[in-house]
């Protein structure tokens, strides 16, 4: 699905990613953990083409294409999705118009026909139910005046609507209450299948109780310094990062 080799990136001339390697295959869930400021969001932004970040080295192949050469919208159209850590408000633009535009742009790029209004509405209703989103939130402007938790739910709602191949979810669990966490996790589990993949960025083991990862990676100082199975999360929860990061840097 995605293959990242020796990726280096900087922002404002400050090096953040310092040679990162990661391979994710179809059907897999990878969790990325790591202390604040270690570069997790930077990785998500670099992969999705945020122009504030400059790639200074390495390669990324996504479905056989050189991802780093594509414009951000084309990466999305290649079916790469980012659930934002801080979703943006867009006043006056309804969720419906926004998603319909997005779906049709993605379809057009992939030489598919536009979604019919009926198909679209049915899909909206079905997916809203999965994440327990009120229909009033759907007709409202994108994220405008949404609570922190509602914004995160809206990201998962969009994930389900757009149905990408690879979803990077940047701290989708932070700011959620216990019920919302469960619902959001259900959404992700509903999305997941053998043909797609998920990269979960999280600080908390509890998310991983709901969404079981195949691999856990520890990102520290712009590199993955440890990888393991789901038990690694428990170990981290118990011992923190010190025991791994000692000797690094």
């Amino acid at each position: 699905m995605i293959s990242i080799k020796n990726l280096k990136a900087e922002i404002d001339n400050k090096e953040i990613l310092r040679g990162l390697d990661l391979q994710v295959n179809a059907g897999e869930v990878h969790a990325i953990m790591g202390p604040n400021g270690s570069g997790k969001s930077t990785l998500a932004n670099v992969l999705t083409g945020n122009e504030n970040y400059e790639v200074t080295g390495g390669e990324v192949t996504f479905n056989g294409k050189n991802l780093l050469n594509l414009a951000p919208e084309d990466r999305a159209r290649e079916r790469l999705f980012l659930g934002f850590q801080y979703p943006v408000e867009i006043p006056g633009v309804s969720n419906a118009i926004f998603l319909q535009t997005a779906i049709n742009e993605i379809r057009k790029y992939n030489n598919q026909e536009e979604i019919t209004p009926k198909e679209f509405l049915d899909r909206m209703k079905e997916k809203a139910k999965v994440v327990g989103m009120d229909s009033s939130l759907i007709s409202r402007s994108v994220n405008t005046g949404f609570s922190g938790g509602e914004k995160k739910k809206n990201e998962i709602f969009q994930l389900l609507m757009l149905n990408p191949k690879l979803a990077i979810l940047d701290e989708t669990d932070s700011g959620l209450d216990i019920d919302a966490l469960r619902i959001v996790s259900q959404g992700v589990n509903e999305f997941k299948n053998k043909d797609n993949a998920v990269i979960l960025v999280t600080h908390y083991q509890r998310l991983l109780d709901y969404i079981i990862p195949d691999f856990i990676h520890v990102l520290y100082n712009g590199k993955i310094i440890k990888s393991g199975g789901k038990e690694l999360a428990l170990e981290l929860e118990e011992k923190g990062y010190d025991w791994i990061t000692k000797g690094e840097k």
Binding site: A71, E73, R77, V88, E89, F98, L99, T101, L162
Partner: peptide, 18 residues
């Protein structure tokens, strides 16, 4: 805002219009 829309497959020109 523009990056958010780009990330959903919408070009910059269309993002601005929206």
């Amino acid at each position: 805002q523009i990056f958010y829309l780009n990330q959903r497959g919408i070009s910059t020109e269309d993002a601005v219009n929206l």
